[in-house]
C-alpha cells in the first residue's frame, strides 16, 4: 500500500525475455531502479538497449518475465489486465513521441479522454479540469482546435495536458521531443521542468543528450542492463529560451 515514504517506482531484478523464433532475446537482464517522488529522470540508451521495454514496464503496458515492480506502493506484477488498465488511469500520465492525439477531435476532448476511463469518479467536472490542464500548458486559447490545426509543439503540449489531467503520480515521456525541432524541444523541456518544480515525478526516455541535460538524473542502459546511474546538475530550459528567443513562434 502506498504511504508517504514509498518511492514512486521500485524495480527489483526485472527481467524480460522475448522468444524470437527459436532464440530468446533478453531485453532486460535484472534491472534495479528506484525513483523517488519529485525526481526528473532521463533513461538513456541506444536502440536495442532495452529502454523501450523498460518504458513499457514502467507504463504497466508490458508484463516482465520476472522481478517485482512497485508503482507508488502497488505491486504491479500481481495485477491482471483490467487492474493494470485501472492503475495506468489512476497513477500514470503518458507522453508519446508521435503525440498520439485522436484525429478530428478537439484539444479539449483529447485532454478529457483519460477521465472517460476513470473508475473511481475522482473528477466531478471533467470539462473544467481539461480546460484547466490546457491552460497549465499555455493553450487556454486553443481549446476547440483540432490536432491538424496545431503545430507540433502545440500538439505535444496538448498531449502533456492530457497526461496531467488525471493528476498522475508519474509522468512517462517516451522520446517526447523526437518529432520536434530544437527550439520547440527546449520549450517542451521547459514545460516538463516547470511541472517537475511543482512536484510531479517525470521519467523521460530519450537517446538525445540535450534532452537528458535538462533532467536531474541520468540512467543509461546497455544490452538490457543499467550501466550508469548518476545525478546531473540540470540546465534550466527557461534560461536557454530567454537567451535565444524564438525566431518564429510555434
Amino acid at each position: 500500500m502506498s504511504d508517504a515514504v514509498a518511492p514512486v517506482v521500485e524495480l527489483r531484478d526485472i527481467r524480460r525475455d522475448y522468444a524470437v523464433g527459436d532464440a530468446v532475446v533478453h531485453a532486460l537482464r535484472g534491472i534495479n531502479l528506484r525513483i523517488e517522488r519529485g525526481e526528473m529522470v532521463a533513461i538513456m540508451g541506444s536502440s536495442g538497449s532495452g529502454k523501450s521495454t523498460l518504458m513499457n514496464t514502467l507504463g504497466c503496458l508490458d508484463h516482465p518475465t520476472s522481478g517485482s515492480f512497485l508503482l507508488d506502493g502497488v505491486a504491479v506484477e500481481a495485477l491482471d489486465d483490467d487492474a493494470r488498465a485501472d492503475l495506468r488511469n489512476a497513477k500514470l500520465g503518458f507522453v508519446f513521441q508521435g503525440f498520439n492525439l485522436l484525429a478530428r477531435t478537439t484539444a479539449l476532448e483529447n485532454v478529457a479522454l483519460p477521465m472517460l476511463y476513470d473508475r473511481h469518479a475522482r473528477f466531478a467536472d471533467p470539462d473544467a479540469r481539461a480546460r484547466d490542464a490546457l491552460s497549465r500548458v499555455g493553450l487556454a486559447d486553443r481549446l476547440t482546435h483540432l490536432p491538424n490545426e496545431l503545430s507540433g509543439g502545440q500538439q505535444q503540449r496538448v498531449a502533456i495536458a492530457r497526461a496531467l489531467v488525471t493528476e498522475p503520480k508519474l509522468l512517462l515521456a517516451d522520446e517526447p521531443t523526437g518529432n520536434l525541432d530544437s527550439h520547440t524541444t527546449v520549450e517542451v523541456m521547459a514545460l516538463f521542468q516547470a511541472l517537475n518544480d511543482q512536484g510531479l515525478t517525470v521519467v523521460i526516455v530519450t537517446h538525445e543528450d540535450e534532452v537528458a541535460a535538462y533532467c536531474k538524473r541520468s540512467v543509461r542502459l546497455h544490452d538490457g542492463e543499467i550501466v550508469s546511474d548518476h545525478p546531473v546538475v540540470p540546465k534550466r530550459a527557461a534560461d536557454d529560451l530567454a537567451r535565444a528567443p524564438a525566431v518564429v513562434s510555434t
Partner: peptide
C-alpha cells in the same frame, strides 16, 4: 489501431 492503443494506455479496459 493507434487510437485503440492510446485509449488502452490511458486506462481503457478491453471491455471498454
Amino acid at each position: 489501431t493507434q487510437e485503440i492503443g492510446v485509449r488502452r494506455a490511458l486506462g481503457a479496459r478491453r471491455i471498454d
